[in-house]
Every structure is written in C-alpha cells, then in structure tokens.
Design a protein around this nucleic acid. Structure first.
Lengths: 221, 221
DNA sequence: AAGTATACTATACATTTGTTTAGTTGTCAA
DNA sequence: TTGACAACTAAACAAATGTATAGTATACTT
C-alpha cells in the first residue's frame, strides 16, 4: 500500500529520528515536530502501522519499530532492496553497507519484495560489490562442507550465471544453493554434497529460476 | 571503577535485555526481574551510571544506554586492537566493530602487536563475540574445503581450546588452522584435508602454541 | 565510634506518554 | 449526495514509568 505525502513525511521523520538518536520518538514528539496535536500524530502512526511500515510494541512508550528499511524504485513497480545510499555515507566514508537478510524467497521477477526482509546486517563494502545484493541463511546441506547450514550467503541478484558459479535457485517453493553448469542446451545444478541429487533442466525452462550468484559466505562458528 | 556482584548481575541483565529485545528495560522491569522494589532497581541504575557503565537519557522512559560493551584488563604495555569503543557507539547503537586484520603472527604472549595489523575491517557485532578478536587471511589448504585459501578467519584470542574446536596455532614460524583434539596427555591438531599431516604433541609442549579459536569464516567468492 | 557505601522495603508523587471521546474540514469516488 | 478517508483540533483519561521521601540492616573504613 502506498503512503500519502503526509504519511511519507512522518515516516521519514521517524526513520531519521531513530537513526540519529538510536531510539524512537514518542507520539507527542512526532506531533510537536509537525505542530499537530498528539491525536493527529497518533492517527498517522496507526495508519503507518496499518500499511505495514511500522510496528508498535503494544502500548509501550517509544515502542516504534521500522519495518520498511529501504525503498528503491528501480525497474518496474516493485521495490528492491540492498541499495540504500544513506547507509553508504555513514560518517563521511562508506565503510559498511546494510545488507537485507531475506527470509522467504518467492518466485517472480521482483526478487526482493520488502515484506520478506527480516532485518539488515552491516557488511564492509569491500565484500559487497553489485547493485542488488542480499543475504540468505542457508538451511540444507546440499553444498556442505563448502557451505554449511546456518551460514549466510551473500547473493548478487542476477537471472543468469556462468559455468562453475555458485548460484541461488528457486526450485518450486524452496530456494537452494547449487553450482551452475551449462552444456549445450542443458543446465545442471550440482550440489557439493554427493548425497544430494543433481538437477538437470532444459535451458529456458521455467521450473527453475536463478535468483542470483553467491559472492560471499559468512559463517558464525 | 569496579562493579559489585549485584551490580554486575543487573548490568548483565540490562545488556541481555537490550540484545534480545532491541530496547532497554524500564526501571520496574529490572526490579521485577530481581524481585526488588522499583526504588532499589533505580538506585542500581544510578550506581551503574555513576560508575560509567550506563547512561540515562534524562528521565526518559526506557532511556538506558550501555556504555561499556566489553571490559578488558589489558595485560602489559601492548596496545591491543579490536576494542575501539568509538566505533561501537556509532549512531547510538553498536552495529559494527572494527576488527584488525593481522598480517604476520608471531610467537610470544602479546599476540597482537600493533605493528602487525595490516588494517581493519568492520564486522557486525553479532558476529564478533569476545574480548580480543582478530582476522587472519588463510593461506594453506589444510582445512579445505571447510575453510579455503583466501578466506578470512575470525579468531578469538585464547591459549587453550576444547575438543573439536577449530584453532589457529603457531607451529614454528607459521600460523596454521587446525582442528583441536585432546586425548589423555596428548594433543592432536587435525587438518580437514587428508593430504595434510596431523600434528601430535605432548600437552604442555612449547613447540606449538595455540593463538586462538576460530569463531567465524568470511569468504569472498 | 562515626561515617560512608551497598542493598533493600514501603509508599507516594509527578511526568511522560499512549489512547479515547467528540468533533470539524476538505477531497474524491460511487 | 452519501460515504469513506485523510488530516486535523481540543480536551481528557489512564497506564506506564521515573523519581522522591523516609526508613532498615549490614559491612567496611577511618
């Protein structure tokens, strides 16, 4: 759902407030900033919550949480994540970039619907090269021991790949990490672990969709 | 200034609360957790503030900020890296911590002489747990494919380890990554890759020195 | 022996803050 | 024209929360 211009103003103010001060504003602080009554501010917060931009922690003081971190109008009507330039300019120099951690990955062109962003993790920009990048927590053992369950893979969104690339693909409902090979008209998706099966598909098939290339692996032992 | 054991308990509770929930507890929540009256909790908060462990944002609801993230009794005259508190307080909340990348690792107690630090890389604090932490670029294939050459391993400095830990050890002049096993009085350092040899030493031997435990792996593909 | 710090009880006060009731005004679509 | 929504005023309510008053008990320090 789209925001009205007033709601946008208020949402941006809250985002800025939290970023600057580290904690959310109270209802009255929002009101005072826009010279409106607490009730008016309150209505806006409720509207923002209804539209899924904010979460309110019950009726707790300063209990606001931002749910939509980054909106980027790139290609098409879908908002894409991983491009927030504000974060790049922290303290003058771009050291880190907030990378969204994607919970659920769904089919369709617009890979990173905002609703699926579970949070963000700052990573040094040296590690993150590419426009549209996201993190995915690995579940299966298909790439073990190269990539282990619980690892985070850093993925650059792209719909094609080159021989030998490690890619994230969407097979049915599940996102899996596999190594990509193309021979003639056939595409092979090989796991590192022999107990998993190799997936073979025709080029151009729609059963399997390439979501992106793995450009990094992060493991917490 | 040192904390009393009770103050330590309360401080740790607040740290944990913030870490879990993302916002600080109220005075009463602290009190309820320890089954004491609000006033007693309040006194503790004031004591913690006086000792420089907390900051209270005026009289604001849930206005607590942790100031001391990690306490280090620095042993010796060496400046140690990875503890920069300014970076911990970026934008109010500790998102990243600058971790030193160690080029050369040398024997001797003070592991991280400043001269060997090649630079720093910011990492999210969720990944970095421990007082003295550094990054090391892996050269050999001894832990392949679990850890590959070119990977950065995140190491927590410690001179002992537990069975099954992946550790960084100093054998002669070279730092190597191995898996640690102790059986009876003998220590085994096993590579993941069978083509490398297992190192066996007597406990207490000075040929091999444990530098730290690997708590993370970072791979740029 | 007096003073100071810690750790606490019990109650009360005051502020901050979220929320409600009750209304007004303007816009835009059915 | 009616209805829904956005955006607001004005005042009040009530819950959460920080803080003060007043006091007890214990340990340690000078």
């Amino acid at each position: 759902m789209e925001l009205t211009s007033r709601q946008r103003e208020i949402f941006d103010y809250i985002k800025g407030f939290i970023k600057e001060r580290g904690y959310p504003p109270s209802v009255r602080e929002v009101g005072e900033h826009f010279h409106i009554y607490p009730r008016a501010a309150f209505d806006h917060l409720r509207a923002l919550e209804k539209k899924g931009y904010l979460k309110r922690r019950g009726s707790m003081s300063r209990g606001l949480e931002i749910l939509v971190f980054q909106e980027v109008e790139s290609h098409g009507p879908y908002r894409r994540a991983g491009l927030d330039e504000e974060h790049l300019r922290r303290e003058g120099r771009p050291w880190v970039r907030e990378i969204p951690v994607v919970g659920r990955v769904e089919a369709g062109k617009p890979t990173l619907a905002v609703e699926h962003v579970e949070g963000t993790i700052p990573l040094p920009i040296e590690w993150v090269k590419g426009k549209e990048v996201f993190l995915l927590k690995v579940k299966g053992e298909s790439m073990s021991p190269f990539i282990l369950p619980g690892d985070y893979v850093l993925v650059r969104s792209q719909s094609s790949a080159e021989n030998g690339d490690v890619v994230v693909t969407l097979v049915g409902e599940e996102a899996t990490v596999k190594r990509f090979y193309k021979k003639g008209g056939k595409i092979e998706l090989k796991p590192e672990n022999e107990r998993w099966e190799t997936i073979q598909i025709e080029e151009g098939s729609r059963e399997v969709q390439i979501l992106g290339k793995v450009i990094g692996v992060f493991r917490k032992c």
